[in-house]
């Protein structure tokens, strides 16, 4: 690990002033510290944001929910508000099955952690390219990689919470030297242009401060993760659904897939197929089938098509309270 300076500001303004291209924001540290140990991150300064009180907590706000960036998985998983109105978020938080990570890991950190692609983590860059520019995942070991790659990006977005937050229409508030801005959760992610680029739209001198989730208003929502292990493990595929109901029929649906593309993937065709229909197991199966439209799997991850079909079907059935 490279030696670094440690700063412990108590206001967002001070924190922003301490940030630069050579600094990194420290929250739970569950990813950053291991990246630093591997010299994949070499910040000269760490800016701890856990001492900034206003960045914490989960509370009702304007009919919806305000989640502080440093709220932990555990706070999310145990919040009554989240459990009753936004079960998809609670389910996503509980998918992180390590109590240690749930206690340390934060909502902001989950959204902004770096991909787990083993080529990236082994030092081959965010796009996982060999010295001659060859993308390694398509010709190598890609069982955990994207079936919806974009350009040269074959890694998968690692966030547990992003699919659920996007399906619920949540926004991220970002503070920077020139004031605040608000973006959709999906807009946090970009495709890096180069192998040394970044997959996050957040600028080095910006801080994600909070997440705002709109009022649930009876939206049925659920998250279904397919994980190899019960113990701590990355999902192989995730589906989060949010269904706005009109009586017994679906007025509007949102289906977001996780761990299958470099950004969370909106399954628009699947969502459209639900509109105006009454929930049923057959409808859920049909949505699952449509969710893999446009997928482009590689040599070792075709199985993820089946996982997506299943995750979407099960998430819809779970949201609708339909027994298998």
């Amino acid at each position: 690990m490279q030696a670094f300076e440690y700063a412990n500001p108590t206001t967002v303004k001070d924190a922003i002033a301490l940030l630069s291209d050579d600094a990194a924001v420290l929250a739970g540290g569950t990813d950053l510290i291991s990246m630093m140990k591997e010299y994949l991150a070499t910040p000269k300064r760490l800016v701890n944001i856990k001492s900034i009180k206003e960045l914490g907590g989960i509370a009702k706000a304007g009919g919806g929910l305000r989640i502080g960036a440093t709220a932990t998985f555990d706070e999310l998983a145990t919040s009554t508000l989240v459990r009753t109105e936004y079960p998809s978020l609670q389910q996503a938080a509980l998918g992180v099955t390590s109590p240690q990570i749930r206690n340390m890991g934060t909502v902001g950190g989950d959204l902004l952690q770096r991909p787990r692609c083993w080529y990236f983590r082994n030092g081959f860059g965010i796009l996982g390219k060999d010295k001659d520019g060859t993308s390694l995942a398509p010709i190598g070991e890609n069982r955990y990689h994207a079936i919806f790659p974009k350009g040269d990006a074959y890694y998968v977005n690692p966030s547990s919470l992003a699919p659920a937050l996007i399906a619920l229409g949540a926004k991220a508030k970002i503070a920077g030297p020139n004031g605040n801005r608000e973006v959709g959760i999906d807009e946090l992610y970009v495709i890096p242009g180069t192998n040394s680029g970044r997959e996050l739209s957040l600028q080095p001198n910006e801080i994600l401060t909070e997440i705002v989730v709109p009022a649930a208003r009876g939206t049925k929502n659920a998250t279904y993760e397919v994980r190899h292990k019960e113990a701590l493990d990355w999902p192989l595929a995730t589906a989060s659904v949010a269904l706005q109901m009109k009586g017994t029929s679906i007025a509007k649906a949102s289906i977001v897939l996780g761990h299958v593309g470099p950004t969370p993937v909106m399954a628009a065709a699947a969502a459209n197929a639900l509109t105006g229909k009454t929930l049923s197991a057959d409808l859920a199966t049909e949505a699952g089938r449509l969710a893999v439209e446009g997928a482009n799997p590689m040599s070792g991850n075709t199985y993820k098509l089946q996982l997506v079909r299943t995750a979407v079907k099960r998430a819809i059935m779970q949201a609708g309270g339909i027994k298998a």
Partner: peptide, 16 residues
């Protein structure tokens, strides 16, 4: 990894 000759999972994350 056949091309790079590397062990891709020398960790407790993907060496499950």
């Amino acid at each position: 990894d056949a091309r790079t000759g590397r062990v891709l999972n020398p960790d407790m994350e993907f060496y499950k």
